[in-house]
Design a protein around this nucleic acid. Structure first.
Length: 575
RNA sequence: GCCCUGAUAGCUCAGCUGGAUAGAGCAACGCACUUCUAAUGCGUAGGUCACAGGUUCGAAUCCUGUUCAGGGCACCA
């Protein structure tokens, strides 16, 4: 077993083996492992197998539990076991083993998280905004959730390729071309490029609704672009360049980095070949002039892969993208992070890619749409909130808070801190709820800085840093590494148990693509720590106890910092 | 019409592959700063887990039906 295996892992292996040997079980699919208890009066971990085994073994659950307890030789890290209720077997870890585990974590750069991703490549496809449209608050979920998944997988040792699959191709570019040539305001374009591009697009779109010749023109320009006309090509490249530049300022503020910016257009050359493969495998057929893939037997509606005008759809692009990614990167998994509206699309193209025999493990991580309290927001309604405006507002509010609580801090530091807090607050709001739940946007919630929020966690971290520095200033001669950790106080123990569960939280968050599991873990941890902080002395504790507690503080700080970092939230030593 | 989601405290939300008394935050009320950072802590109050059945030793969790809400379903992505 690896050096830093968690108690849950070790105990589960042990109970599984012990159950099998005591009751002579072979290949059963009943879970014989343990899970964390939800109440510490029931110990630290519980095994529920006795109830599940009643029928198989042919004995009463209590009796099974008792026989197990009598026969088993406990592992050294278990202090005692108890049988309770209908047949729960409760395990109490020894304080000594807990302390030893905490000490061992300090030597592990991954704080106990197993490097399960070694040698595996994962592509995470997220954010993916459309060119020539400003990012609004609806884009924050894909960006922030996708980025957390990206960071989590990297932490677990995966070779992660973060790919921003920009919407840089499609029929809208015909309208963009004509609109741009007729309506663009060069000054406005300099001041706010993407906003101006959007204005141009909307104006052109409106013209097209009334004017048939306008539509014809747009279509002609689109065809020219697709055929590689130099002038249109240059203009199109300009749209992309301006857009990426502006997206990057947002990504920089959010601390989001991509390895690739490959838009849909990157795969254009592969589309005819993809259609050919579909036809060769007899998957596609003509229908009303379009080429479709029938998915009736899979319980899904048909999927159009080539329009009757000869153009391709995004299903085709996505298939070609998978093919290209497999060829170039041979990924173990490709994770797509998009909103819930695309569920059917992904199911369809995942199914088709399987039928094509593409060897890829494709995962669609979807999240609930963001809406406003009064209605779903949309460009047409004119009720969009720009992402940049949200970030600005968060930093302004955070700065007010910093100025009032730390007036003596140099202004530059106040600003830096306000950024970390404001951006952290916004990210945490999104990351702390289940991605799949519907999200109603309110300023109040997005910028929440009290209670269950990023600033609460950042505050807890800063308090620890402060304590730690004071300790060193007061006792410069003491070498903490040489002092042992001893767990005595009840709340110390609660904290230690929580700290030991960090690897499980990381794994659960990554396996379920749910950063909120990690967020909740960190919040619980910070709550326990805050209670610890308020209720027991450490700098003022007697020698020995003092050093032990400072070391526990150190580990707590390391986990808070690392955990928040995995959510893309920064910490500061002073708040 | 068909398909996919969801419904948990006044409000916003957790609740992992079924486990013991369903948890937080906000709002409300009370207490604690000459003290290691009060962006905090401690406490009180707040629930028919939408509704009705079913499976199970055990259901907020799984299954079926109903109601309500959101989304999707042929040339947008």
């Amino acid at each position: 077993m690896r050096e830093f295996a968690t108690f849950e892992e070790r105990l589960s292996i042990w109970t599984t083996d012990a159950m099998k040997s005591v009751f002579g079980l072979e290949g059963t699919d009943i879970n014989l492992g343990v899970s964390p208890t939800n109440n510490d009066k029931f110990g630290d971990y519980q095994c529920n197998a006795a109830m599940s085994l009643a029928k198989t073994v042919g004995k009463a659950p209590r009796q099974i539990a008792q026989e197990f307890a009598d026969a088993a030789v406990l592992p050294d890290f278990v202090e005692k076991i108890e049988i309770a209720g209908p047949g729960f077997i409760n395990f109490f870890l020894s304080n000594h083993a807990l302390a030893a585990y905490l000490q061992s974590l300090e030597n592990d750069p991954h704080l106990g998280a197993e490097q399960v991703g070694q040698g595996k490549t994962v592509i995470v496809d997220y954010s993916s905004p459309n060119v020539a449209k400003p990012m609004h608050i609806g884009h924050i979920r894909s960006t922030v959730i996708g980025n957390a998944i990206d960071r989590l997988y990297r932490y677990l040792g995966y070779n992660v390729i973060a790919d921003n699959h920009l919407g840089d191709w499609g029929t809208q570019f015909g309208l963009m071309m004509v609109g741009f040539r007729n309506f663009v305001d060069e000054d406005a374009l300099k001041a706010a490029p993407v906003e101006e591009l959007e204005r141009v697009y909307v104006a052109s779109y409106n013209m097209s609704k009334e004017d048939a010749s306008w539509r014809e023109q747009a279509k002609a320009e689109l065809v020219k672009l697709q055929q590689g006309d130099a002038e249109n090509r240059a203009l199109w490249e300009k749209f992309i360049e301006l857009s990426i530049e502006e997206f990057n300022t947002i990504y920089n503020r959010l601390g989001v980095k991509f390895d690739l910016y490959r838009g849909e257009s990157f795969y254009n050359d592969r589309l005819p070949k993809m259609i050919q493969s579909l036809e060769e495998k007899d998957l596609a057929k003509e229908s009303d002039g379009a080429l479709i893939v029938g998915l009736e037997e899979d319980g899904m509606p048909i999927c159009i892969v080539r329009k009757s005008d000869g153009g391709y759809n995004y299903a085709t692009t996505d298939l070609a993208t998978v093919e290209a990614r497999i060829e170039e990167f041979d990924p173990e998994r490709i994770i797509y992070v998009t909103d819930e509206r695309q569920q059917l699309h992904f199911k369809q193209f995942f199914t088709i890619s399987e039928k094509l025999g593409m060897n890829a493990n494709l995962v669609h991580v979807w999240f609930g749409l963001m809406r406003l309290p009064e209605a779903t927001f949309s460009t047409r309604e004119g009720n969009v909130i720009k992402l940049a405006a949200l970030l600005d507002e968060a930093e302004v509010r955070a700065l007010e808070m910093v100025k009032s609580s730390s007036p003596e801090m140099p202004e530059e530091q106040q600003r830096d801190l306000a950024k970390a807090i404001g951006i952290g607050a916004i990210k945490y709001t999104d990351l702390s709820q289940n991605p799949q739940s519907l999200v109603t946007f309110t300023w109040e919630k997005a910028l929440n800085m009290q209670g269950n929020s990023a600033p609460y966690l950042q505050y807890a971290y800063a308090r620890i840093s402060s304590v730690y520095d004071k300790f060193h200033a007061t006792y410069p001669e003491i070498e903490l590494e040489k002092c042992s950790i001893n767990i005595e106080h009840e709340i110390e123990r609660r904290l230690a148990i929580k700290l030991s569960r960090f690897p499980a939280a990381i794994r659960a968050a990554a396996d379920n693509y749910s950063p909120n599991i990690l967020a909740e873990y960190l919040y619980d941890l910070a709550q326990i720590y805050s209670s610890f902080y308020q209720n027991v002395p450490f700098l003022k504790a007697e020698e020995g106890v003092r050093e032990s507690r400072i070391r526990i503080c150190q580990t707590t700080a390391a986990i808070l910092k690392q955990g928040l970092g995995l959510l893309g939230i920064e910490t500061r030593e002073r708040i």
